[in-house]
Computed example of a mutant assay.
Amino acid sequence: MGETEQEQIKVLIVSDSHGRNDNLRKAVANMRGTHCRMLHAGDFQCSPQEIYDLAGVPVDMVRGNCDSSLSGVPLSRIVEIGGYRILLTHGHQYAGIDSIGNMSEMARANDVQIVVCGHTHIPHMEKRGDVWVVNPGSISQPRQPGHQPSYLVMNIEHGTVDFVPVYLT
Protein backbone atom coordinates (compact mmCIF):
# COMPACT_ATOMS: atom_id res chain seq x y z
CA MET A 1 0.00 0.00 0.00
CA GLY A 2 2.99 2.35 0.28
CA GLU A 3 3.72 5.16 2.66
CA THR A 4 0.09 6.34 2.86
CA GLU A 5 -0.89 3.24 4.84
CA GLN A 6 0.59 4.81 7.97
CA GLU A 7 -1.61 7.88 7.66
CA GLN A 8 -5.18 8.14 8.81
CA ILE A 9 -7.34 9.29 5.91
CA LYS A 10 -10.98 10.33 6.26
CA VAL A 11 -13.13 10.80 3.20
CA LEU A 12 -16.63 12.29 3.16
CA ILE A 13 -18.82 10.30 0.74
CA VAL A 14 -22.11 11.86 -0.40
CA SER A 15 -24.64 11.47 -3.18
CA ASP A 16 -27.92 12.80 -4.44
CA SER A 17 -27.85 16.30 -2.97
CA HIS A 18 -30.11 17.51 -5.82
CA GLY A 19 -29.19 21.17 -5.39
CA ARG A 20 -30.35 21.19 -1.77
CA ASN A 21 -27.02 21.85 -0.12
CA ASP A 22 -28.03 22.64 3.48
CA ASN A 23 -27.44 19.05 4.64
CA LEU A 24 -24.28 18.89 2.57
CA ARG A 25 -23.04 21.94 4.49
CA LYS A 26 -23.89 20.13 7.77
CA ALA A 27 -21.93 17.06 6.70
CA VAL A 28 -18.92 19.19 5.74
CA ALA A 29 -19.16 21.05 9.07
CA ASN A 30 -19.30 17.72 10.95
CA MET A 31 -16.09 16.67 9.20
CA ARG A 32 -14.32 20.05 9.35
CA GLY A 33 -10.68 19.61 10.18
CA THR A 34 -10.74 15.82 10.00
CA HIS A 35 -11.18 14.89 6.35
CA CYS A 36 -8.92 15.31 3.41
CA ARG A 37 -11.27 14.65 0.50
CA MET A 38 -14.88 14.40 -0.64
CA LEU A 39 -16.42 11.98 -3.11
CA HIS A 40 -19.77 12.97 -4.62
CA ALA A 41 -21.54 10.17 -6.47
CA GLY A 42 -23.71 12.41 -8.61
CA ASP A 43 -27.07 14.14 -8.86
CA PHE A 44 -25.70 17.31 -7.33
CA GLN A 45 -27.81 19.50 -9.69
CA CYS A 46 -25.78 22.66 -9.19
CA SER A 47 -22.52 23.90 -10.60
CA PRO A 48 -19.49 21.75 -9.79
CA GLN A 49 -17.81 24.93 -8.54
CA GLU A 50 -20.49 25.29 -5.85
CA ILE A 51 -19.61 21.82 -4.54
CA TYR A 52 -15.87 22.57 -4.67
CA ASP A 53 -16.35 25.83 -2.75
CA LEU A 54 -18.64 24.23 -0.18
CA ALA A 55 -16.31 21.27 0.48
CA GLY A 56 -13.14 23.21 1.17
CA VAL A 57 -11.11 20.08 0.33
CA PRO A 58 -10.37 18.27 -2.94
CA VAL A 59 -13.54 16.82 -4.48
CA ASP A 60 -13.96 14.00 -6.96
CA MET A 61 -17.42 13.88 -8.50
CA VAL A 62 -19.34 12.15 -11.23
CA ARG A 63 -22.46 13.04 -13.11
CA GLY A 64 -25.76 11.43 -12.18
CA ASN A 65 -28.87 10.86 -14.25
CA CYS A 66 -30.21 14.29 -13.17
CA ASP A 67 -26.95 16.06 -14.11
CA SER A 68 -27.27 15.53 -17.87
CA SER A 69 -26.46 19.16 -18.74
CA LEU A 70 -23.04 18.91 -17.06
CA SER A 71 -21.21 17.23 -19.91
CA GLY A 72 -17.80 18.25 -18.51
CA VAL A 73 -18.27 15.92 -15.52
CA PRO A 74 -17.65 12.21 -16.26
CA LEU A 75 -20.23 9.46 -15.68
CA SER A 76 -17.62 7.43 -13.82
CA ARG A 77 -14.00 7.70 -12.82
CA ILE A 78 -11.36 5.78 -10.94
CA VAL A 79 -9.57 7.59 -8.13
CA GLU A 80 -6.82 6.38 -5.82
CA ILE A 81 -6.91 7.19 -2.12
CA GLY A 82 -4.67 5.68 0.54
CA GLY A 83 -3.59 2.83 -1.71
CA TYR A 84 -7.15 1.88 -2.73
CA ARG A 85 -8.51 2.14 -6.26
CA ILE A 86 -12.08 3.44 -6.12
CA LEU A 87 -14.65 3.38 -8.92
CA LEU A 88 -16.85 6.44 -8.43
CA THR A 89 -20.13 6.22 -10.35
CA HIS A 90 -23.71 7.34 -9.87
CA GLY A 91 -24.80 3.79 -10.64
CA HIS A 92 -27.85 4.39 -12.82
CA GLN A 93 -26.04 2.94 -15.81
CA TYR A 94 -25.65 -0.38 -13.92
CA ALA A 95 -29.29 -0.62 -12.82
CA GLY A 96 -30.93 -3.99 -13.18
CA ILE A 97 -31.61 -7.18 -11.31
CA ASP A 98 -28.13 -7.31 -9.79
CA SER A 99 -26.72 -3.80 -10.05
CA ILE A 100 -24.30 -4.45 -7.16
CA GLY A 101 -23.04 -7.55 -8.94
CA ASN A 102 -22.65 -5.60 -12.18
CA MET A 103 -20.66 -2.86 -10.44
CA SER A 104 -18.47 -5.31 -8.53
CA GLU A 105 -17.66 -7.15 -11.79
CA MET A 106 -16.73 -3.82 -13.42
CA ALA A 107 -14.52 -3.11 -10.40
CA ARG A 108 -12.71 -6.45 -10.67
CA ALA A 109 -12.14 -5.89 -14.38
CA ASN A 110 -10.43 -2.57 -13.53
CA ASP A 111 -8.43 -3.71 -10.47
CA VAL A 112 -10.68 -1.65 -8.19
CA GLN A 113 -11.28 -2.53 -4.52
CA ILE A 114 -14.13 -0.09 -3.74
CA VAL A 115 -17.17 1.05 -5.72
CA VAL A 116 -18.88 4.23 -4.53
CA CYS A 117 -22.32 4.77 -6.06
CA GLY A 118 -25.59 6.59 -5.44
CA HIS A 119 -28.88 6.77 -7.36
CA THR A 120 -31.11 4.67 -5.07
CA HIS A 121 -31.21 7.26 -2.23
CA ILE A 122 -30.84 4.30 0.17
CA PRO A 123 -27.61 3.72 2.15
CA HIS A 124 -25.98 0.37 1.51
CA MET A 125 -22.61 -1.27 2.25
CA GLU A 126 -21.79 -4.71 0.92
CA LYS A 127 -18.63 -6.65 0.26
CA ARG A 128 -18.80 -8.91 -2.79
CA GLY A 129 -15.74 -11.11 -2.71
CA ASP A 130 -12.85 -8.67 -2.49
CA VAL A 131 -14.82 -5.60 -3.64
CA TRP A 132 -16.73 -3.18 -1.42
CA VAL A 133 -19.83 -1.59 -2.99
CA VAL A 134 -21.02 1.35 -0.90
CA ASN A 135 -23.84 3.82 -1.34
CA PRO A 136 -24.10 6.74 1.11
CA GLY A 137 -27.83 7.17 0.45
CA SER A 138 -29.13 10.67 -0.21
CA ILE A 139 -27.95 13.72 1.70
CA SER A 140 -31.20 15.56 0.76
CA GLN A 141 -33.95 13.16 -0.39
CA PRO A 142 -33.65 9.87 1.54
CA ARG A 143 -35.86 6.90 0.64
CA GLN A 144 -34.96 4.35 3.34
CA PRO A 145 -37.31 3.72 6.29
CA GLY A 146 -37.13 6.70 8.64
CA HIS A 147 -36.12 9.00 5.74
CA GLN A 148 -33.01 10.40 7.44
CA PRO A 149 -30.51 12.16 5.19
CA SER A 150 -27.29 10.16 5.17
CA TYR A 151 -23.66 10.09 4.15
CA LEU A 152 -20.64 7.85 4.73
CA VAL A 153 -17.26 8.47 6.25
CA MET A 154 -14.55 6.26 4.78
CA ASN A 155 -11.62 5.69 7.14
CA ILE A 156 -8.33 4.34 5.85
CA GLU A 157 -5.69 3.58 8.44
CA HIS A 158 -2.73 1.19 8.44
CA GLY A 159 -3.84 -0.24 5.09
CA THR A 160 -7.39 -1.10 6.19
CA VAL A 161 -10.63 0.57 5.21
CA ASP A 162 -13.96 0.90 6.97
CA PHE A 163 -17.14 2.83 6.30
CA VAL A 164 -19.23 4.61 8.92
CA PRO A 165 -22.80 5.63 8.04
CA VAL A 166 -23.93 8.98 9.44
CA TYR A 167 -27.58 10.03 9.65
CA LEU A 168 -28.62 13.66 10.00
CA THR A 169 -31.61 14.60 12.11
Rank of each mutant, 00 (worst) to 15 (best):
Ala41Ile: 14
Ala41Trp: 10
Ala41Met: 14
Gly42Met: 08
Gly42Pro: 12
Phe44Val: 09
Phe44Lys: 08
Phe44Asn: 02
Cys46Ile: 02
Cys46Asp: 11
Cys46Val: 05
Ser47Gln: 13
Ser47Val: 13
Pro48Phe: 10
Pro48Met: 13
Pro48Lys: 13
Pro48Cys: 12
Gln49Cys: 03
Glu50Ser: 10
Glu50Ala: 06
Ile51Lys: 04
Tyr52Val: 10
Tyr52His: 12
Asp53Phe: 04
Asp53Leu: 08
Asp53His: 08
Leu54Gly: 07
Ala55Met: 10
Gly56Leu: 12
Gly56Met: 11
Val57Asn: 00
Asp60Asn: 11
Asp60Ser: 06
Asp60Pro: 02
Arg63Glu: 04
Arg63Cys: 01
Arg63Val: 05
Gly64Ala: 14
Asn65Asp: 13
Asn65Ile: 08
Cys66Trp: 13
Asp67Gln: 05
Asp67Thr: 05
Asp67Val: 00
Ser68Leu: 14
Ser68Ala: 15
Ser68Arg: 15
Ser69Leu: 14
Ser71His: 05
Ser71Arg: 06
Gly72Tyr: 09
Val73Leu: 06
Val73Trp: 05
Pro74Lys: 07
Pro74Glu: 09
Leu75Glu: 08
Glu80Asp: 10
Ile81Ala: 04
Gly82Tyr: 10
Gly83Lys: 00
Gly83Ile: 03
Tyr84Ser: 09
Arg85Phe: 02
Ile86Gly: 13
Leu87Thr: 01
Leu88Phe: 14
Leu88Gln: 15
Thr89Trp: 02
His90Gln: 15
His90Ile: 15
His90Thr: 14
His92Tyr: 14
His92Glu: 08
Gln93Ser: 10
Tyr94Gly: 09
Tyr94Val: 13
Tyr94Ser: 14
Gly96Asn: 15
Ile97Gln: 15
Ile97Lys: 15
Asp98Cys: 02
Ser99Leu: 08
Asn102Pro: 04
Asn102Tyr: 11
Met103Ile: 04
Met103Trp: 03
Ser104Val: 01
Ser104Asn: 04
Ser104Lys: 03
Ser104Pro: 03
Glu105Val: 03
Ala107Phe: 05
Ala107Arg: 07
Ala107Leu: 10
Arg108Lys: 12
Arg108Leu: 07
Arg108Gln: 09
Asp111Met: 11
Gln113Gly: 11
Gln113His: 12
Ile114Asp: 00
Val115Trp: 08
Val115Lys: 07
Val116His: 00
Val116Asn: 00
Val116Arg: 00
Val116Ile: 04
Cys117Asn: 05
Gly118Gln: 07
Gly118Phe: 06
His119Ile: 09
His119Tyr: 03
Thr120Gln: 02
Ile122Glu: 10
Ile122Ser: 11
Pro123Ala: 04
Pro123Lys: 04
Pro123Arg: 03
Lys127Ala: 09
Lys127Ile: 10
Arg128Gly: 03
Arg128Met: 08
Arg128Asp: 09
Arg128Tyr: 03
Gly129Arg: 11
Gly129Trp: 05
Asp130Met: 06
Asp130Tyr: 07
Asp130Ile: 06
Val131Arg: 01
Trp132Arg: 01
Val133Lys: 02
Val133Ala: 01
Val133Phe: 02
Val133Thr: 06
Val134Ile: 08
Val134Phe: 00
Asn135Ile: 00
Pro136Asn: 14
Pro136Leu: 11
Pro136Ala: 15
Pro136Ile: 08
Ile139Gln: 05
Ile139Tyr: 01
Ser140Gly: 07
Gln141Ala: 09
Gln144Asp: 06
Gly146Val: 01
Gly146Phe: 00
